[in-house]
Write a protein that binds this DNA or RNA. Sequence first.
DNA 1: GTTCTGACA
DNA 2: TGTCAGAA
Length: 132
Amino acid sequence: MLKEIVYMNEKQLRRSLAVLPIGTVIKLTSLSARQIRYYETQELVFPERSEGNRRMYSLNDIDRLLEIKDYLNDGFNMEGIRKVYAMKKAQAAAEESQKLSDADVRRMLRKELLNSGGMLEDNLTKLPRRRI
DNA sequence: GTTCTGACA
DNA sequence: TGTCAGAA
């Protein structure tokens, strides 16, 4: 958990901050409190809790809720949607290693530019070596 | 005033 | 899924 956060960029971090009460979520998604809470029991969304046990949602949760809404309109049931996310998660995990490779590619490209031009500051060399 | 949980004419 | 009750 902490490991993922370390590699998250600021934009993603902000989107994952749970700062919205259910009332705001209702307005943003046009879903009823009943539906939003029900989807949670179905393990489709995982809002945080704060203060007096109040649910707090992040922008990512909003997107998730909107997606669920679409899947429902497409005829999916709770189980089906849960499976969709399970597969999406598995796929993301499978692509993780590939993403690291892409980062290395960009690093190598940047290095090429530095060697030929020498005009850009080399911030990359200050970063820890990545193991492949 | 808002949200939570549980229950059902 | 709506809605009401009783509590926080």
